[in-house]
Each structure stands twice: as C-alpha cells, then as structure tokens.
C-alpha cells in the first residue's frame, strides 16, 4: 500500500515513474533535502541560487544556511507592489553563475500563480536547475511536472486533505541517481560491510527513491496521502481549481463593499488562487482573526512564514482568507457579514 500510494502520487503529478517521488515530512523537508543533498555537493564560491522575495521561509532558510557553509550567493528577484513576480528583474538576475532557481508555484500569502513553466525554461537556458515550491499549487490546481519541466517539486500532505508530517519531493530520476543521500540509515541502505583492511565500513546506497528515505517510513502517512490524492483525482483538479476561482471571485466582490478593508495582491483573477490577504483599518491582523474566530470563521494572521513579502507590502502582518473544496459562497457571505461587524469597532 505504501508503494501503491507512491505510484498514485506519481501519476497525479504526471511523473515518468514512481521512483521520482520521494516521501518526506513535508515541503520544508523536501527543500532541505535538495539544499543539502544537491546544494552542499554542487554549489560553491562564485555560484548563485536565485529565489524571489515572495518565498515562504522554508524556501529561503535552507539555501541561506547552505550558502554560509559553501560560500555561494543567494539572489532575490523583486516582487511588484501587487504581489506579482517582477519577471524582468528575475531574468536580469539569471546568469551563467546561477545554478539553481527556486520559486513558489503559488504564493502562500497573495495567491499569485507564478509562470513556473516560463521560469523553468529561463533557468534551463542558463544551465540552472529549477525547484518549484508546490505547497500551494499541488492541492489547488492541475500540476504536471513534465509539462512544467521542473527538476524538483515539493509539496505537503496536510494542505491537500492528507495528514500532517507527510509530503513529497518530486525529482527527475537522473538527478536522484547523481545526488548524495540526505540522511543515513534504515531504508536508504543496501549494504554496510566492515572492511578489515581500511577499518571502515563500506556503504552501498539503496536505489532512488529509497536512497533518500532514511529510517522507518511513515507508512500510515503515505497511505493516507495516497487516499487524499485518490479523492482529489475523483473530483478532478480542474474542478477543484474552478471551484476556488468561483469562490475567490465571489469573495473579491464581497470585499469591495467594505470601506475599511484593504485587499493585497493582484485583482486579476487569472493570475491568482483562492488566497486573499487583507487588512482592516485600525486593527491588527490578529484582532481580525480573533474576531472572526469568535464567529466560527477561521483565517490566518501574521507573516504566514513570508516576512520578506510583508516588507514589500509594507505590512506589519496580514490577515489571510483562503478557500478549498469544502467552502461555499454561503461561507463567504457569512465572512462578509462578520467583517461588517468588525468595521463597527
């Protein structure tokens, strides 16, 4: 069942084979895996890794840590005031020094959908690899890794009806073959033999993907994630996306009538997912979240692990409404009613 879940997830992503899907604890571990297993061995002084200012901390911090160990430079592409990527700035920062490009497929703060296919082509044209953070895209829209032509794609189970503590790293097989292991022991070993001549142990790694899955696998987690993927497959990811677009359109219309509410991010629905960051005049995002919570409406408040993007928006923090398949227009109408109450404060 564990390997069956891997096969199902590989088909869901459009991977060539299930061996290209590595089970990890989540998106954060997936990015760390690439930063350490690939970055530590392939990057050094004079090299560059290109990120953007809209990245989740999980797609910033691993690269900053490894850059301090290996001496390469981390570059950040600018984000426009509406939260969209500045593609010109991104392209201007690509050079033959760039060895890795890492970008959110969908921003977890603004919901902006980045043109990952275009960025992957730009990266490959400069000889760089492409890692897409799919934490907010894989659960919400159709994602095909071969169509996007990404080298790596990371995502988490808990954002797509699965449990916490399980996620996946998609990686092209040829890269997995070349990469060194991330952690040692357990599943990732084929053989460990003591050599009396050298007084050392000789180690043979297991084949990918198990080479990157040290220890006892989270079997219950992988099976549960496989079932979540099966459920989403039954609905169809285009249906999931269309439902979210409908809800987002409804919410954007509703928010416009609230004078004290300011919405961030693009207004063009063609370039965003079902995530709406907003603020209410005179109130902190935490005040707004607690107020809504009192009426049984859950949103998130704070930096959302993306502090640099809040610097771009010049915000101390933001409130974030987000939608999924279980939400309805009635939920949004109720959200609007409570916002009306909040404006009376």
């Amino acid at each position: 069942m564990h390997e069956g879940a891997r096969e199902r997830i590989a088909r869901f992503l459009g991977a060539k084979e299930s061996a290209e899907v590595v089970f990890v604890r989540g998106t954060t571990e997936a990015v760390n895996l690439v930063a350490y297993a690939w970055g530590l061995h392939n990057l050094g002084a004079g090299d560059e890794v290109l990120l953007s200012l809209m990245e989740h901390h999980s797609n910033i911090v691993p690269w900053e840590i490894v850059s301090r160990l290996r001496g390469f430079k981390v570059q950040y592409a600018k984000v426009k005031s509406d939260g969209t990527l500045d593609y010109s700035d991104f392209e201007s920062k690509l050079s033959n020094k760039t060895k890795m490009v890492c970008l959110s497929h969908v921003s977890n703060v603004s919901g902006v959908i980045n043109d990952v296919r275009r960025i992957a082509k730009m990266a490959h044209d400069h000889g760089a690899l492409m890692l897409a953070d799919g934490a907010q895209s894989v659960p919400h829209l159709p994602v095909n890794v071969r169509d996007l032509d990404v080298d790596f794609l990371a995502f988490s189970g808990h954002k797509m009806l699965g449990p916490t503590g399980i996620g996946c790293l998609y990686c092209k097989r040829a890269l997995l073959e070349k990469m060194s292991p991330f952690q040692g022991g357990g599943e990732m070993i084929r053989e460990v033999s003591f050599d009396t001549t050298s007084d050392r142990c000789g180690i043979t790694w297991n084949d990918p993907p198990w080479k990157f899955e040290a220890g006892t696998p989270d079997i219950s987690g992988s099976i549960a994630l496989g079932e979540a993927v099966k459920y989403l497959d039954t609905i169809g990811m285009q249906e999931v996306f269309d439902h979210e677009v409908m809800l987002t359109r409804h919410a954007m219309m509703m928010l416009k009538v609230h004078d004290k509410v300011k919405v961030y991010g693009p207004e063009d629905l063609a370039s965003k997912c079902g995530i709406i960051p907003f603020s209410v005049d005179g109130l902190s995002s935490h005040d707004v979240a607690l107020f809504l919570d009192n009426y049984g409406i859950t949103i998130r408040s704070g930096f959302h692990c993306a502090q640099p993007l809040h610097q771009v928006f010049k915000l101390q923090s933001s409130a974030r409404a987000s939608f999924y398949i279980y939400n309805t227009t009635e939920d949004i109408d109720r959200f609007g009613e409570v916002l009306g109450e909040i404006e009376k404060l």
Partner: peptide
Amino acid sequence: GTCGAEKDVI
C-alpha cells in the same frame, strides 16, 4: 506571542 511585527499577545 503573535506572528508579525506587532507585539500583541493572545
């Protein structure tokens, strides 16, 4: 402690 630049406490 709240996540953000504000020093709010819940």
